[in-house]
Write a protein that binds this DNA or RNA. Structure first.
Lengths: 245, 245
DNA sequence: TAGCTCATTCTCGCAATATGAGAAACATTG
DNA sequence: CAATGTTTCTCATATTGCGAGAATGAGCTA
């Protein structure tokens, strides 16, 4: 292992359940000598990717917050979408959660969310958390629009997605431009998602609204679906006009 | 230049005003051959630190959002502080903005903020934006508690901070445990900040409330100062009990 | 389809740099 | 002051990244 990999390997050790590491533990886990890890860690600390916690422990550094801001300010999808997201959530006028999510390798990641006043629940799609591609309206709206080659590769990896019924469902999503699912990720909520397409390679996203099952009758879902699709179109326009091409 | 530096040099090219770069431009700016930059960029894209935009352009990648979430979930100061921050803002009951900021190299960076309903302004201390150490209550509350050696080093770099009056002011802040400033960063607002101290090396932060000058009479400032200091103490306790030592 | 223009990857010899094991320095604590 | 644990340093080795240019590939245009 060398170059960037060594640094990334250290950063990828960090997780919600283990947020502090000693050099010793890193070295053992990665199978490299301590002296090497010390050097790596020292470099990462120098660039604020890591910082010293108490007593020989290291945790993630604040540089990520700094770059996250830069991303919020400059990412075309975020700049075009977060405003629309707020508006759509406000416009539908029901206690719901709005999500702006995008394809992220073989996962889906939320990059912005908006909670309507009165919403007493939250979505598992929290900002920055990679989610599976094959479950939930938010994800399936994206999956349905993957290029065939990649679509098949993904499908092959998730056993539960290899059925003919699943393929048919996604075809329907692709046709109708909206995906509705109920309780697939979080119990007792319904997700309504519309894909956001763009000519930019690799930029594939979805706008979705999540609402309690209790208020999600057919009429409501139809209304939410219309709002979601309109919002998605709106964001696509914003992307196109911002030079996102 | 080698190792991490080369990668960081590329990432540091990105700014709010220039958020997309071609390899050619990077190479020219950094003074290294294109082939080298291509390699570097390829590695960064592979780890999602960069992503392809349209037409040979690259922009920052979403990995920062992913790690930002990890930080929000696990950083001791954030986990101990964001809750308190909300509470303090809600408790004072005036249209204000609450900030949780920390020392970040020789700058101050906001890591969490909370806006009270009705606040029609915002602070320059937006989350993730490095701010100078010598201006604004938020920053000076932190500066006043830097170890002497480092304090002097910082002071020397900012010409406007080399006066005796400035040193005296900071001494007073250190004694009283609160710093109040008016219009130093943003016009027409008053900042009230209390330092957050911890035994963790390098962890130095402040909790501050920003409110319109129009409502900031002496009585109000005194009340806000008390609330801010109480909140800061509260966060310190949270830090200590969470093993933050 | 041929021919053009970019963007990106590849080739290869060379020099720079990371590597790893252990020792030395440094800090803390009893 | 000894003892423990952390971090940096030393040094010989060889892995790896480097740089210049060529080769590939993807779009376009005619």
């Amino acid at each position: 292992m060398a170059g960037l990999d060594r640094y990334i390997a250290v950063l990828r050790l960090y997780s919600q359940s283990q947020s502090e590491w000693t050099v010793i533990d890193m070295a053992e886990r990665l199978g490299v000598p301590q002296s090497t890890v010390y050097r790596t860690v020292r470099d990462l600390v120098g660039e604020n990717f890591l910082e010293t916690a108490s007593e020989a422990r290291y945790r993630l550094g604040s540089v990520f917050i700094e770059f996250d801001r830069l991303l919020r300010l400059t990412d075309p999808l975020l700049t075009a979408g977060s405003q629309v997201l707020e508006e759509v959530v406000a416009a539908v006028g029901v206690p719901c959660v709005g999500l702006l999510c995008r394809l992220y390798n073989d996962t889906v990641m939320c990059i912005a969310d908006a909670t309507a006043p009165g919403a007493t629940f939250s979505s598992s799609y929290e900002r920055g958390r990679p989610m599976p591609l094959t479950m939930g309206a938010t994800s399936k709206a994206i999956l349905a629009h993957l290029p065939t080659r990649r679509f098949n590769r993904v499908i092959d990896q998730w056993p539960e997605a290899r059925t003919q019924a699943f393929r048919a469902e996604l075809m329907a999503v692709r046709k109708s431009g909206v995906c509705v699912s109920s309780g697939e990720i979080d119990a007792n909520v319904v997700g309504v998602a519309a894909p956001i397409l763009s000519k930019t390679p690799g930029l594939l996203a979805s706008l979705s609204l999540v609402l309690p099952q209790s208020i999600a009758d057919d009429a409501m879902v139809a209304r939410i679906a219309a709002a979601t699709m309109a919002g998605a179109r709106h964001i696509e326009e914003g992307l196109a006009s911002s030079g996102g091409l």
